[in-house]
Amino acid sequence: MSDALQFLISGLVVGSIYGLIGVGFTCIYNVTGIVNFAQGDFAMVGAMSAIAIQSAGAPMWLAIILAILITCVVAVLIERSAVQPVRGDVMRGIIVTIGVGVVLQGVAAIIWGTDAQPLPAFSGEKLLHMFGATVMPQSLWVLGTAAVAMVALDLLFRRTYLGQMFRACAMNPFAARLVGMKVETMSLVGFVMSGALGAIAGIVVAPIALTQYDTGLQLGIKGFVACIVGGFGGPIGAALGGIVLGVLEAFSAGYVSSGYKNAIAFALLLGFLLFRPGGLLGEYERVRA
């Protein structure tokens, strides 16, 4: 019984890591319709910057803030230099983000080397015990961050004027421009938010998972699966999808064999794409007109 509980906790934590990355996908998607395959690499850039600044002697809070700012600047540069030139063409935008991911990994390998790097846990490493299972305090940070990010973004997209403008730009950029919205600015804001969210995800996860230049690829793929499972575009769906994936992985690693873990992720991806493309929660209020 305590085994099962331990698997569940492990799954929830890993799942919210996937979910956090997945939530980051929704920002750019809901503004531009682009699936940003460099989302995992945003997390890597955020984590690596935080580690570098922190190990240079800066206090943790400063390192985190600076790392988020750095990642936002990177996101802005990418939006202006790589995504703007192909604006209006979602397919080309998606391909561009794949290229951007490769470039980010290469640059990270040059700046920070290829070794994995650790970041100290935010509130110590003293274990918490509950019902025979153990939990790292950092795991609670991950769970909490995922919950806050998911709810905040959902409110933003659905309840605020800014959120409505975002989605208007994605649904019909031409009409949005006709009624006076600055589509380019909205797209930039979407990238900045996605960069900030990616960085936060990477930093919160770093003390648990360790970070190296190519961590982003794996995270990005899992985050993408989380989005598909939960329903693309919805922050709550993305977080939920991540948790479903994480818990399934943990139980299969515990009871079957971890060799099947990635197979499960891709079977889930294929299954949802084929039979329920809208995901668990259904498509997030159809974006494509």
Partner: peptide, 20 residues
């Protein structure tokens, strides 16, 4: 005997089995 994938971020499930 338990295994994990080279990119895995958490080996708690496998080690829980080992603990048992």
């Amino acid at each position: 005997q338990q295994a994990y994938g080279n990119d895995d971020k958490d080996m708690t499930p496998q080690l829980t089995r080992i603990r048992s």
